[in-house]
Amino acid sequence: MKKIFIGIFVIAFSVVFLLAISNSVDLFTYNDSLSSDSVSNGYINKNVTKNQSEVIFNETTDAETGSANIVTSIIVNYRSFDTLGEVTVLFLSAIGVSLLFGSTGKLAERKKSGFILRTAARIIFPMLLVTGTYLFTHGHLTPGGGFPGGAMIAASFLLLYLADEKFVTAIEKIKLVEGSAGTLYVLIGITGLVTGGYFLANFIPTGTVGQLISSGIIPLIYVLIGLKVGAEITSVVSRYLQEEVTS
């Protein structure tokens, strides 16, 4: 009964909310093209600092950020500071989880996994690892990047956990990866500050748009992010699994 009232209440509010929000945003029709005063035009044409009208795949060189994936260029270059914060958020929640659970090192009692899973895991684990690595090394060229790549690496470890009830990750080593990746990210930023005058400035030549070795610090950072995210999520997962279950 109570839930019905809440339902009616929320429905009524939804109507109000949709009416209200329709003043600010058109709910049913979409633009045909990007509006000219949006900042995104600058990102797409890579002409925020340089006077450049068009970027051509595999031709344009020395663009202000050489990433073919524009979203990546925003994440890791134009708004890289956000990403540093984002990584920190993940870092912080990993720390939070580990602080909450403490490191008992003991495994929760788990069911023994089946033969198929155990066998398949051994095959799939390296594939996942490789795919994850591929995702973050090609983040500046193709969809993907550090975050999905890292998540995939973490997934591969989760798979190991599922497959082997005795599997334990060396949390200390994971932490080392986590910490040093983060430190390196900041150090890259500071190097940018020292050499280019801006924190996180792209101080490496950006190369040709579309090449693997291009776009300056972007792949570098994405690799770091990939490692860091992978390490963090793995650490979160293993914390959950290692936490002693008190009956």
Binding site: K46, I56, A68, I70, G210
Partner: peptide
């Protein structure tokens, strides 16, 4: 919003990349 060999110019009709980021 990804430049590829097919969509090779930044003048293409891209969706807004910022919200995706």
């Amino acid at each position: 919003p990804i430049l590829t060999s097919q969509v090779n110019s930044s003048l293409s009709n891209f969706v807004d990349p910022l919200p995706q980021a």
